[in-house]
Simulated assay, not measured.
Amino acid sequence: MAYNLLKGKKGIIFGALNADSIAWKVAERAFEEGATFTLTNTSVALRMGETAKLAEKCGAELIAADATNVEDLENLVKKSMEVLGGKIDFILHSIGMSPNVRKGRHYSDLDYNYLDKTLDISAISFHKVLQVARKLDAINEWGSVVALSYVAAQRTFYGYNDMADAKALLESIGRSFGYIYGRERNVRINTVSQSPTVTTAGSGVKGIDKLLDFGERMSPLGNATGDECADYCITLFSDLTRKVTMQNLFHDGGFSSMGMSLRALEQYEKGLGCDCECGDAGDHDHRYD
């Protein structure tokens, strides 16, 4: 059901690769709620993904941009304002990638060149987007910027690797820039800490299927889906949340406030009879798990 929450609003959406992407779902909902926007991703992602279909459906223009490249971002923002007919009202940052995760590097044995790329793509790009937008005075007063995060920024999750460091930095950037942009121009900046969600990026996390099951058992309301996350982002882009800024907002069915649930405890008890010889240094070395 549409409520015209974004009627007349304009924006830029980063990261819609395919129908599994949360950014894709946000774009669909923003369109339903009356917004116009541009869609952006790297040139390679636009060629390999299905974003052109989404652009056609939403009447949006595709603009290739590497979010780690300031010149690309300047071109993106300028062209978006030109296409949309003025300043924008919202931005979604839905970008994350870790070469260390993709290459199976353990957190205690990171490739630091890969780590630099992880931080640049997944977090520092957020700062670059905000810095470019501010310098170009591209966002209207009471505009809203949202970046997608995960609870691994606060808690350790096996297999999430250096993406946890990136998400912690992402959230810090949201707070620091939120103060500046809020005080100067009444622009609000928030991060949304979403439940584990099966996306192209999320599927690369080791044990994602088990993480989804654990989240479902732990959360009183169950895991939040990608569609539900899109709904939440729409409210943050709308005028209904004008005084919400500098927050990391947990959208996870209550997971982040839980210690142990009965469903998770019962599942844990079922596994107590299984002995694991962790002293075996073969293929089952769990000393650092």
Rank of each mutant, 00 (worst) to 15 (best):
N41K: 03
H286V: 05
Q247G: 02
K79Q: 11
D111H: 06
Y158H: 13
G104W: 09
Y179Q: 14
D209V: 00
D275I: 07
L130T: 08
C233D: 07
G204F: 04
K10E: 06
D66V: 04
L169N: 08
S21K: 03
T245C: 00
T199Y: 02
G15W: 07
G59A: 02
W142Y: 15
R242Y: 05
L148S: 05
N113V: 01
D137K: 15
V77F: 08
K79H: 10
L54D: 04
D275F: 07
N75I: 05
L130G: 06
K128T: 00
C58T: 15
L73Y: 01
F31K: 14
T199S: 08
V70P: 05
I88P: 05
A164K: 09
E141P: 09
A60M: 02
G85R: 12
D252K: 05
D213L: 11
L130A: 09
V244S: 03
G182N: 08
A23E: 08
E269G: 00
G34M: 08
G159K: 04
A264G: 13
K78N: 14
C233A: 13
D227H: 10
F90V: 09
H106S: 02
I234D: 06
V151E: 10
D66F: 00
I208L: 14
G49A: 04
E32M: 11
K128C: 01
R134D: 15
T235E: 13
Q194Y: 01
Y232N: 12
D283T: 14
L136I: 10
R175C: 02
H286M: 11
S80R: 11
D209W: 07
A201V: 12
I139M: 09
W24F: 01
S21C: 01
R102K: 14
V77C: 00
I13N: 01
E61D: 09
A52K: 15
R185T: 12
T235I: 04
L76G: 00
A19R: 15
G282W: 02
F126Q: 06
C274Q: 15
I234G: 00
K210Q: 11
G271T: 13
A224S: 09
Y114C: 07
V101P: 03
L236I: 12
S257F: 07
K79I: 03
T199R: 03
A166G: 08
A164P: 08
K117I: 06
S176N: 15
D20I: 08
I234Q: 01
Y268M: 12
A147K: 10
A168V: 09
V129M: 14
G207K: 07
L262C: 05
C278T: 14
C229D: 03
Y114T: 00
A67V: 15
